[in-house]
Simulated scan of single mutants.
Amino acid sequence: DRNRAKESKIPTGKKAGGQNGHIGKTLKKVDDPDEIKEIEADRDLLPPGRYKHVGFESRQVFDIDLSRVVTEYRAQVLEDQKGNRYIASFPEGVAGAVQYGTGVKAQSVYMSQFQMIPYNRVQDYFADQVFMPVSDGSIFNFNKEAYELLAGFEERVKTELAASDVLHADETGINMGGKGHWLHLASNTSWTYFYPHEKRGMTAMIDMGVLPNFKGILCHDHWKPYYTLNCTHALCNAHHLRELARAFEQDSQQWAQKMKTLLETINTKVNDAGGVLEVKESDKYRFEYRALIKEAELECPLPDIPKKKGKRGRIKRSKSRNLLERLRDFEDDVLRFMDNKPVPFSNNQGGNDIRMTKVQQ
C-alpha cells in the first residue's frame, strides 16, 4: 500500500538467530528408511585374526528425488464375432489422450497460492526440475479448479472463525488488475480467511460474512469500524509500543517512555504467570497504568480552544494526544491480556498472517 505511513521498528536488543530457550528443529532417525545399503568391512585393512559379525552402526541421509512419473493406461479392447468392439473403462478423471495428474496440480497450486511464487517461476520449476512443460494458462486453471473445490471448505472456515473465542482482524492495501483493493483478514490459531474487496469499511466486513456473526474477543489495531461490531475488543499493544516510542523520540513525551516500559513489564509478568495475572497483581498494575495516564494529562494537555469564531468541530490533536486519549478511554481493551488468558498482548498473528501477500505483491 503506497499510501500507508511507514512505522519505525522498535529495537529489541536481541541477537540475530535463535534465542535462548528456542526449540530447534533437527533431523532425527526414522525406524523405516526407504532404502538400506549395507557396507561390508574391508578385512584386508584389519589386523590378522578371526572376526565374527556382531551388528551394524547406522547413519541416515535424508534426500529428495524429483522425477517425472508418466503413467500410461491401456484399456483393453474386445471384439465379438460380429465385429462389435468393447473398450474397458478408464479410471475416473482420465479423460484426455495426455493430461496432468493431481500431483502436478497440487504442487502447482501449493507453489502459486501458498508460497506466493509467480506463474513464470512455477513454469521454470517444472521445466528445470522434472522436464515438464506447464503453461501459465494451465497454472491458472489448476488454481481455478482448486478454488471451486474449496467452496464448501470456505464456508466451514467462516463458521469456525465466527464461533471462536478469540479472533484476529487486519486489512491491507493490495493491487488487483491495476486497481487498489483491500485484503481483509480474520484468523485464529487454527483457521485463516482472506477476503479481497473494493472497500475497507463495514460494507466489506458484511460481505466477508465472518465478523458480523462473531461474539467473542476481537484483537485489532483500533481501526474505528471494528468498534461497530457487537463483540468484545482487545487492542494490539505492539502498535501501542511503536506509537509510544514515536511520542518519546519525536515529541519528547516522558510519560510515553514510562508507559512503554510498564506495558512491556506487564507482558513479561503475564508470560511468567502462565498467561493471566492474579487479581491482586492485576489491580496493582492497573493502578500504575491510571497514575501514568494522569501524569500524561499534565504533560500532554488538550490543545487550547481557538478564540476565533466560525469553524466548529473537534479541535485537532497531536499524535501523542490522540494516543493518550485512546489509552485512557479504552483501558479495558488495552489491558485485557492481563486478565483473560486466551487474549494475546498484540495482534501480531493477524499481521503475520497477512504479511506474505505483501511479499508476493
Rank of each mutant, 00 (worst) to 15 (best):
T192Y: 00
L183E: 01
M176Q: 14
F142K: 06
W182Y: 10
K158G: 02
E171R: 00
L161W: 02
E148Y: 09
H184P: 06
V134A: 02
W182G: 08
D170G: 05
S135Y: 12
T192D: 00
E148V: 11
M132Q: 15
M132D: 14
A169S: 10
H181A: 13
P133Q: 11
H168V: 02
N175P: 05
F142A: 07
W191M: 13
D165L: 01
S187V: 11
V166G: 03
H181E: 09
G180H: 13
G173N: 03
A186S: 14
S190M: 13
G177T: 12
E145T: 15
R156K: 08
H184G: 02
D165T: 09
L149A: 15
V157I: 11
P133V: 03
L150V: 15
S135I: 07
K158N: 00
N188I: 08
G180W: 11
F140S: 13
G178V: 07
V157A: 00
M132A: 14
T189P: 01
F131E: 11
G173L: 02
E145L: 13
E154P: 04
G177L: 09
M176R: 12
D170C: 06
E154F: 03
S187G: 05
L183W: 02
H184N: 11
M132P: 07
L167M: 13
K144D: 12
E160A: 09
I174G: 00
A146S: 08
A169W: 00
G177Q: 08
